[in-house]
């Protein structure tokens, strides 16, 4: 078991024929991901990497039965691509593109939610179910199969954390890079319950960052609903206060978004809060031992 994606998941790629789309699609296919086709407007009918190219997501969906789309289109076109996927009936869009305008993502996310489509990202490494399905740009070989779920705002810290977990002789069920943009798709509050419900996942690593209050919301959820051990690290304990000119952002949630505040909330919720990023793997091993 795993969450969201597995070896049977059929994936199309929006922005399939571009440089990034091509490179990473090849890598995903080599990992074993079932990429069944791609979408590039005006290139419909072509074959790329041995797979059919379609003009629209709707055509691709009809022909292939894909449920997931991996999105590599340039930033200015991301919102359109996400909304097209939602309109066509895609169930999960994994948005890798970095640099999408926040306003665009706000509209795209609202529409996706209305259509019942889940999104991951933008500006994220993607999602991987170890040794089954990689939808994104992470180095697949770092993710060995195991019983630890992983949720992270940061790309390279996801790799770091997985590497540490594997060095402890453990492994990963599914790892999700949720991205750190102001508007993101699936976050801790949706993913923690999924890992809680996954019989194979026995511990959950969550990696957060300063800013916003997603980690504070996660802490509330952990306290109320999550029984599996959660190992948390918040990056940016030593970050200086933002150089923002205004400070209206800190007011909305009544939270200042500091690492200390997030760590305290998570600790209070019963999570294993790791202070040094070098201790993630060892703390997972310790938590699993203690809970057994």
């Amino acid at each position: 078991m795993s969450i969201l994606v597995n070896k049977d998941t059929k994936v199309i790629v929006q922005g399939f024929t571009g440089k990034e789309g091509t490179f990473h699609s090849e890598q995903c296919m080599a990992y074993g991901t079932q990429i069944v086709g791609g979408v590039t407007p005006n290139k419909g009918g072509m074959t790329h990497l041995g797979k059919p190219v379609f003009n629209t997501v709707e055509d691709a969906l009809k022909a292939t039965g894909a449920t997931v789309s991996m999105i590599f289109v340039p930033p200015a076109f991301v919102a359109d691509a996400v909304m097209e996927a939602a309109d066509a009936g895609i169930e999960l869009a994994v948005i890798i593109t970095e640099g999408a305008p926040v306003r665009d993502m706000m509209y795209a996310k609202h529409y996706a939610t209305k259509k019942g489509m889940k999104t991951i990202g933008p500006n994220c490494p993607g999602i991987i179910t170890a040794e089954e399905c990689k939808i994104g740009i992470m180095p697949g070989h770092i993710f060995k199969k195991g019983n630890v779920g992983l949720i992270s705002k940061s790309g390279t810290l996801t790799y770091e954390a997985s590497n540490q977990v594997v060095k402890e002789g453990l492994g990963i069920t599914t790892a999700v890079g949720i991205g750190g943009d102001p508007i993101i798709g699936l976050s801790y509050k949706e993913l923690l319950p999924m890992f809680e419900a996954d019989p194979e996942t026995e511990a959950i690593v969550m990696i957060g960052e300063i800013g916003g209050d997603l980690e504070i919301q996660a802490a509330k959820l952990i306290k109320e609903k999550i029984t599996k051990p959660v190992i948390a690290f918040i990056a940016g304990q030593t970050a200086p206060k933002g150089k923002r000119m205004g400070h209206a952002g800190a007011i909305i949630s009544g939270s200042k978004g500091t690492a200390a505040e997030k760590m305290a909330a998570l600790k209070e919720a019963g999570a294993y809060v790791v202070e040094s990023p070098a201790d993630i793997g060892a703390t997972v091993a310790k938590a699993l031992k203690e809970r057994k």
Partner: peptide
């Protein structure tokens, strides 16, 4: 000198931690 913003912040954190 680090690759990735999250790891870069974490690197600052561990330096302080040590």
């Amino acid at each position: 000198m680090v690759n990735g913003a999250g790891l870069a912040m974490a690197t600052m954190d561990i330096i302080k931690h040590e």
